[in-house]
Design a protein around this nucleic acid. Structure first.
Lengths: 196, 196
DNA sequence: ACACTAACGCAAAAAGTATTGCTTTAACTT
DNA sequence: AAGTTAAAGCAATACTTTTTGCGTTAGTGT
């Protein structure tokens, strides 16, 4: 019923397993581009990927679990925390990266999946681990700024003033914030900490 | 396939119809309290409410449609836009109201439902209408402040600086922001517009 | 190279979800 | 108070999703 992927730390990670995983992931991404979120189901993914339905159920348990895995995978790859040498540079790079993550056909899906995946009272999911790691990295980014003698915001402020509005846009307006507006959010964050 | 509720503007709104609607709504709310989001299905709602499954399908089409109706109904009731006489008073009252809306067992469900309900290319839903009406009311609240000679933020700023973080908290931290923190958000909004 | 077994494929069955045709109830109309 | 019909009940059916048992394939260790 649960994702085997996270259970055993990979008892046989070799060729075929990896190939199947890649094919299924690619199928999910393709289908999310072509069809919408609502028309996505395990049967479609199976057909597109050439992987049997049963295999998908056994490895990922549910469609939600699979999407969770895909989203986490994508986020983990495509997002090294920036280190440009200045606080503003780091924040702008980070903000644009997030804006980009929630762009395109997959953006709203990411955010939606992030929320839907959040189940109550269940054991730790790969994405929760990812979010935690990411929080640590972002904190390190802010710490670097402090070490340089700059006056960085807290992690919470970063999330509330930059991250939250970016997600909000993607969800409720159905489209991501533009570049200008994204940079405005960073200005707002810096103005806040620059003043007090 | 779609919610009949919104189709005909109520061709027979009388006693029984209203009773059935109330019973079903109550069952949904109760079940969301007791079980989680994930275990909720039409069969359970039918059993709990004493209303036949067929009736639920015919009136609301799907579980998502039903939840949409319940959420919209709740939001519509419990939230008159404040009019305290001062901008700060209005904003604080509003922020606390939102924080309260996303509190309790139903809070995350509300936010989640708000997102899930957002389907692409479908006709206007009752909740979209609600959100639009609400936006108009909030704009009116800000206009009142301007008429009094105060310097209110834009609607977008209100949503980004107050609303978005409150939702963000509820979703990602699994619990709503506290009173103190909610008021901090209002301070932040006022500081922003007070300065520039 | 050979044995071992995790992971996959396949088909059938089970469980869950949604639809349809018809009957009955009760709100509304006159 | 009698007729009309929207809305609800009921049961049978169709459709979709998920699970299960077993045979096959191909990484992995010796």
């Amino acid at each position: 019923m649960w994702a085997v992927t996270a259970e055993h730390p990979a008892r046989r990670p070799g060729g075929r397993t990896a190939r199947v995983r890649a094919a299924v992931h690619q199928a999910v991404i393709d289908l999310l581009h072509e069809e919408g979120w609502d028309d996505l189901n395990v049967a479609l993914v199976a057909e597109r990927s050439g992987v049997h339905q049963t295999t998908i159920y056994r490895r990922w348990g549910t469609l939600a679990g699979l999407i969770d895995d895909v989203v986490t995978e994508r986020l983990t790859r495509s997002s090294p925390v920036p280190d440009t040498g200045t606080l503003r540079g780091d924040l702008e790079a980070y903000a644009l990266q997030v804006a980009d993550d929630v762009s395109g056909p997959l953006g709203p899906v990411f955010v939606r999946a992030a929320m839907i995946g959040t189940r109550d009272g269940e054991e730790t999911t790969p994405r929760q681990i990812y979010l935690l790691e990411r929080a640590v990295q972002l904190q390190a980014m802010l710490d670097r700024a402090r070490d340089r003698g700059e006056n960085p915001p807290t992690l919470l402020e970063l999330m509330e003033i930059v991250q939250a509005p970016l997600y909000f846009h993607a969800i409720f307006f159905g489209r991501p914030a533009g570049t200008d507006h994204t940079l405005t959010l960073v200005d707002r964050l810096l103005a806040l900490t620059g003043k007090s």
